[in-house]
Amino acid sequence: MTRDLVGYGGTWPDIRWPNGARLAVSVVVNFEEGAEQQVGDGDPHSERMGEVISVVAPGVRDMGQEQIFAYGTRAGLWRMLDGLDRHGIKATFLMCGRAVERSPVLAREIAARGHEAAAHGWLWRPQADYASEAEEARDLDRCIAAIEAATGARPRGFFCRGSESIWTRGLLAARGFAWASNAFDDDLPYRDPAHPALAILPYALDTNDMKFFHPNGFVRAAEMVDYVNDAIDVLLAEAEAGKPRLLNIGYHLRICGRPARFPAFDRVLARLASLGDRVWVARRDAIAAAWSAAT
């Protein structure tokens, strides 16, 4: 893959999103719990990143980490689903295959409430870790099958932890995916010349609640709310000056599903809802379809 450091080169396509706005906003919720690596699940090591960095020795079952993750699906999911319902916002849920396979009733409820179920890999791990295309293809197919069995719909989009591999986009294109999001390099979708049928919807790791788990990130909910509001204000001003834009806001069940951090979710949703048709808040599949139709 050749690096493109120019992109649109300052000449933006003249497009509007379906409601007439020039700023689209994608709210993403990660459904990973049960797909993180855990010795207790037969994985070679346990995930170390959580509320604190795990102090359990490598190779030993870490039941504390298991429970930190389980909070996301046992409690956080319902708080966040109700918040989305209350504000009338549809999100894209990035679903790891093993998480869906273990809790299909939860994935089914998410889809029943009108949210998109997208693929997030079989496990919560970088696709770049795969040693072969065949191994990656096998796990991608397992993820697709688990989501389709639970929700009744085949996923149309993909994003994985960290980095995709050199094979990922080809595997997605061959399976008819509409969009991929392992890109952090633009404020607008674009095409990968090697796979022109695949819309690349850039994602963002700064307007993302994972920064609550990083030492240089957010501590209190208000810090994320202020940060996201700044992003909204800047992109809205650019959009209303005629430049189309896409804002991505990412959340995790085990992070902003917690009571003290939930306002970082709820208040951002309230701000988005208050903007009306000045923005277009949509699922990623709808954003990919609209961008493809306009370009």
Results as ranks from 00 to 15, higher is better:
residue 50 G to D: 03
residue 219 V to M: 02
residue 78 W to Q: 09
residue 144 I to F: 10
residue 177 F to H: 06
residue 149 A to N: 11
residue 24 A to G: 13
residue 282 A to F: 07
residue 239 A to I: 01
residue 78 W to E: 13
residue 268 V to S: 05
residue 272 L to P: 09
residue 194 A to T: 00
residue 32 E to I: 04
residue 214 H to Y: 10
residue 148 E to T: 12
residue 27 V to H: 11
residue 204 A to Q: 12
residue 254 R to D: 05
residue 91 A to N: 08
residue 259 P to F: 03
residue 202 P to T: 12
residue 31 F to P: 08
residue 220 R to D: 15
residue 253 L to M: 14
residue 88 G to P: 10
residue 228 V to N: 13
residue 129 D to T: 08
residue 101 E to L: 13
residue 173 A to C: 02
residue 78 W to G: 13
residue 44 P to D: 11
residue 144 I to W: 02
residue 42 G to Q: 06
residue 109 E to N: 02
residue 18 P to W: 10
residue 157 G to C: 10
residue 286 A to V: 12
residue 134 A to R: 08
residue 35 A to R: 04
residue 159 F to Y: 11
residue 270 A to R: 11
residue 71 Y to S: 06
residue 96 C to A: 15
residue 262 F to K: 00
residue 96 C to D: 08
residue 220 R to G: 10
residue 98 R to P: 01
residue 143 C to I: 00
residue 5 L to F: 14
residue 18 P to F: 12
residue 37 Q to I: 00
residue 143 C to V: 02
residue 229 N to G: 08
residue 4 D to W: 07
residue 75 A to G: 00
residue 190 Y to K: 04
residue 31 F to L: 14
residue 75 A to P: 00
residue 28 V to T: 15
residue 292 S to M: 13
residue 228 V to H: 05
residue 145 A to W: 01
residue 280 W to N: 11
residue 224 M to A: 10
residue 60 V to M: 11
residue 7 G to A: 06
residue 154 R to V: 03
residue 267 R to C: 12
residue 161 R to C: 09
residue 291 W to K: 07
residue 211 K to A: 14
residue 9 G to Y: 12
residue 128 A to M: 05
residue 37 Q to M: 12
residue 145 A to V: 01
residue 17 W to K: 10
residue 90 K to W: 04
residue 221 A to E: 12
residue 269 L to D: 12
residue 225 V to E: 13
residue 68 I to V: 12
residue 151 T to K: 06
residue 170 G to H: 01
residue 29 V to R: 02
residue 98 R to H: 07
residue 201 L to C: 15
residue 254 R to H: 14
residue 24 A to F: 09
residue 133 E to H: 07
residue 196 P to G: 01
residue 255 I to D: 11
residue 255 I to A: 08
residue 188 L to R: 14
residue 261 R to S: 04
residue 214 H to M: 15
residue 245 R to Y: 02
residue 35 A to L: 02
residue 209 D to P: 07
residue 39 V to M: 08
residue 86 R to Y: 08
residue 94 L to I: 09
residue 14 D to T: 04
residue 193 P to N: 02
residue 36 E to L: 03
residue 50 G to T: 00
residue 192 D to I: 00
residue 13 P to M: 07
residue 214 H to G: 00
residue 178 A to L: 15
residue 229 N to D: 15
residue 160 C to M: 00
